[in-house]
Design a binder for these strands. Structure first.
Lengths: 359, 359
DNA sequence: ATGAAAGCGCTAACAC
DNA sequence: GTGTTAGCGCTTTCAT
């Protein structure tokens, strides 16, 4: 019976209702619920009554109202560049980002930027005040660089902090919120190969990408340290992080120059190279030892041979980047983050097979 | 000079300002900008003036204010279950989801649910009115099933539509917004193996997951069609989508029963199986032909041998699912979506090597 | 064809 | 210690 109310949508509880229930005013409720500075001026008993009422009624603040009133949105926007080419690394980072954001009371908006189109979303989200900060991830290519610049401009205009996750975005004012030690990784990888006795180590890199260039510097540093000259003929620098090119370039290299090992700046490229080397008739690691970079959880340990690679702490860097961004939003001091990386030994480098498959 | 205004934050333009600029009232501006039904009552010239002013001033509506006023949020929440185990499939789907959502003026909130913790975020986002609809993706495991149920309950209480992306969530009221034809995929894969002359085809599946079970049904259907009896001894049903288990189970199977081919319900599991088969001394495809499922863009073509697999249209299913969810939100009629899948022929099934590496 | 005005739910400056 | 009240920017009903 209780006619009226043709369709009963569970009414959202408002502050007013809980104020009434607790016999106080909205203000008091607001102070209590937000633990606002004025909370000191609220008696313990009132506080308790309010909290209780809020709980009983199942209160949740309305985000829009709060946002309208405070001017904040308590959300950040994650922009993924060229998501097409990203896999677990992206997912891992996203998990880390979200984990920290959640702990700080922020929610996560997401948008992707691939070539065209997507741009507008980004601007709308930012301009409509849906985000208090922006986190960039992925890596911009030639197509997306203009977009990247527009994004930076927009964020600056709006006074919204913007930070990059794990990669330098050259030529932009974007600060890297959390980076990993790409150079050290490249050095560890290369040094390990050198320890295995190799002196002609090929390098498969990507030109123009900060992370790849750093890894390459690590490769050079390892040579320097060992007193081995680097031979530029052993370099292949792709114009883009592209597997097909990696395959072809490696095939060509294997047929034209002499080398007994190879450091590849990413696992995704490494599998392509592995495939090309096999096509060139080489057996790994006997005819060519290999080390990659990233340690993709799902795929890298099941290559043939299992790939020795530098572990990239995706989750951790996402977490740290979010942390930095939140500091920026709150105008708190921030310290640069450089996460260490380390080598995961499997068989492609020439190390012996592990006893169990457990790694 | 121009003292005052110590820090100049580009003032957000409001409707009032554009109203003033155009010499009309807020109401008119709102009507024009939203193309509201009353737009018919706005003279073309006024309309143009308003539009022009809005453009000149670089106006963007404030999302919070609009949301507070309309009760909508123009955003949907994507919940990713067990994101740990997802890679490109997730990214592909997310891209699809976002592509459609953007076209409809929705923004995307994201949160993950892994074991513990994350739950709260979810509820907060929903209860604080930040989302008009929920899209579930990933697959719930035993740990996360309770969370899943809580989520469904919450969404229902709030009257917020909730839909699943590409997988049935057994025992919940969640409707599948866009599914792919897992069964047909399993059948195509198996039939192809049968055409290659195999009659003892092992199956590596996952128990309790809708998608995996469907793929298995396809395997059985193919046998039935070919008049080949299925031998349950050839089945391995993992309790979870776990590569280590897949490796071990396959190794054991290879050593205990006789089979000349294998259908594996996912590429991730397939690489583990491939590795195990090699460890058991088999050469592929000669000693064992293999077909997987998913066609991971980055990894599946560089396995050794290149993996023949069923292409899973991740992007498309994300797109379609978002489409359905939007229909649900708008209370428009919806039609079930079942995307077709097809086999990608490479070499692990025994087919000849392609002329170029181009696929 | 257009405008006035009443909210939407919350915050915070200011009174008491 | 606690309450009043004036917005925040937008939508929408109802006048005109």
């Amino acid at each position: 019976m209780a006619a009226r109310r043709t369709k009963w949508q569970k009414r959202k509880v408002t502050m007013l209702e809980i104020a009434t229930a607790a016999g106080v005013s909205k203000t008091t409720v607001s102070f209590v619920l937000n633990n606002s500075p004025n909370i000191i001026a609220i008696s313990e008993s009132t506080r308790r009554r309010v909290l209780e009422a809020a709980k009983d009624l199942g209160y949740s603040p309305n985000a829009a109202a709060r946002s309208l009133s405070t001017g904040r949105s308590d959300a950040i926007l994650v922009v993924v560049f060229d998501s097409r080419s990203w896999d677990q690394s992206l997912v891992g980072r996203l998990r880390g980002v979200e984990a920290h954001l959640v702990s700080q009371g922020y929610s996560t908006h997401m948008c992707t930027v691939d070539g065209e189109g997507g741009t507008s979303t980004f601007f709308e989200i930012l301009r409509s005040g849906r985000a208090d900060g922006v986190l960039l991830t992925g890596s911009a290519t030639q197509d997306t660089y203009p977009v990247l610049h527009a994004i930076c401009g927009q964020a600056e205009d709006l006074g919204i902090p913007i930070a990059a996750l794990a990669d330098a975005w050259l030529g932009t004012p974007v600060r890297v919120a959390a980076d990993i030690d790409d150079e050290s990784g490249g050095e560890q990888a290369t040094s390990h190969l050198i320890e295995h006795g190799h002196s002609r180590i090929a390098l498969l890199g990507v030109a123009g990408q900060g992370w790849a260039e750093s890894r390459k510097r690590g490769y050079e540093a390892a040579h320097e340290k060992a007193g081995i000259p680097v031979d530029p003929h052993l370099f292949v620098q792709l114009d883009d992080h592209n597997q097909t090119w990696a395959y072809e370039a490696t095939l060509k290299l294997a047929r034209s120059v002499d080398f007994s090992a190879m450091f590849i700046v990413s696992d995704a490229l490494a599998v392509a190279a592995l495939s090309a080397l096999k096509a060139a008739g080489r057996r790994m690691p006997e005819d060519c030892a290999i080390v990659g970079f990233d340690n993709n959880e799902t795929w890298s340990k099941f290559t043939d041979p299992p790939l020795t690679t530098v572990h990239n702490p995706f989750y951790e860097s996402g977490f740290a980047a979010a942390e930095t961004l939140v500091h920026m939003i709150r105008r708190e001091p921030i310290k640069p983050v450089l996460l260490p990386v380390s080598l995961v030994f499997r068989e492609s480098c020439g190390c012996q097979r592990k006893v169990s498959q457990e790694q």
